[in-house]
């Protein structure tokens, strides 16, 4: 494992910890999109079908379990926790995320490395992850003001994607036959979706002002 991939995994983990911290410390999930969290839950469940069939490393297995567990825990909290669910921005979080699930599954049925159960679900999870942040970004844009922890959550998620692209560039030059166009193209799309957010985050950081997204 190279340093870029490790940095990517760590920023991904930090983003999840920031999200858990926000929900547990403030007992609030305002500014967080339940739709995006549900999509991540589906992404991890679909991608980690190999959890019990292929062993790669203890590191991989533990991280997979953490990603599945934390995403399901957040979804549970936002839906059922007596206090937390009250702060859910139900009226603003109206993105029709099931269309994303359907669209990505159709795409995976046609564009995959091999037509097998696992490969189709793997491709589906890659496509869905690329667009899973959309409901979250739209919710932030609609509500305008972004609290610090929510802003940092999205920032770390974006950093994770950026590091993974560096990881692929590194692997492309250091490994033989490292072709992976499905995840590279999807990864580029996903990172591009964050570009706008990064820009406004940088502006607010430079001006030492609260993060505000234009309507």
């Amino acid at each position: 494992m190279n340093i870029f991939r490790f940095a990517g995994d760590m920023t991904h983990l930090i983003s999840i910890l920031v999200l858990l911290l926000k929900v547990y410390a403030t007992k609030s999930c305002s500014g967080i999109s339940l739709k995006t969290q549900e999509l991540y839950g589906i992404v991890f469940l679909a991608r980690y079908l190999d959890l019990f069939t292929d062993f790669i490393s203890v590191y991989n297995t533990v991280m997979k379990l953490v990603f599945i567990g934390s995403s399901l825990a957040i979804v549970w909290c936002m839906r059922f926790h007596r206090v937390v669910k009250r702060s859910y921005d139900r009226d603003v979080d109206t993105f029709r995320h099931y269309f994303l699930v359907g669209g990505c599954f159709l795409l995976a049925l046609f564009v995959h490395e091999k037509f097998s159960f696992r490969e189709v679900f793997w491709a589906f999870s890659i496509y869905l992850e690329a667009v899973a942040i959309l409901p979250q970004l739209i919710l932030l844009q609609r509500s305008g003001n972004v609290d610090n922890l929510t802003g940092q959550y999205v920032l770390f998620l974006g950093a994770y994607r950026g590091f993974y692209i560096l990881n692929w560039i590194y692997r492309y030059f250091t490994e033989d036959q490292f072709s992976r166009w499905i995840s590279c193209v999807s990864g580029l799309v996903q990172t591009a979706l964050y570009a706008d957010f990064f820009y406004y985050y940088f502006i607010s950081w430079k001006n030492n002002a609260k993060l505000k997204l234009p309507a």
Partner: peptide
């Protein structure tokens, strides 16, 4: 089967 390099990531 052998795990492809793509699938050793998270």
């Amino acid at each position: 089967g052998q795990t492809s390099p793509v699938k050793d990531e998270l």
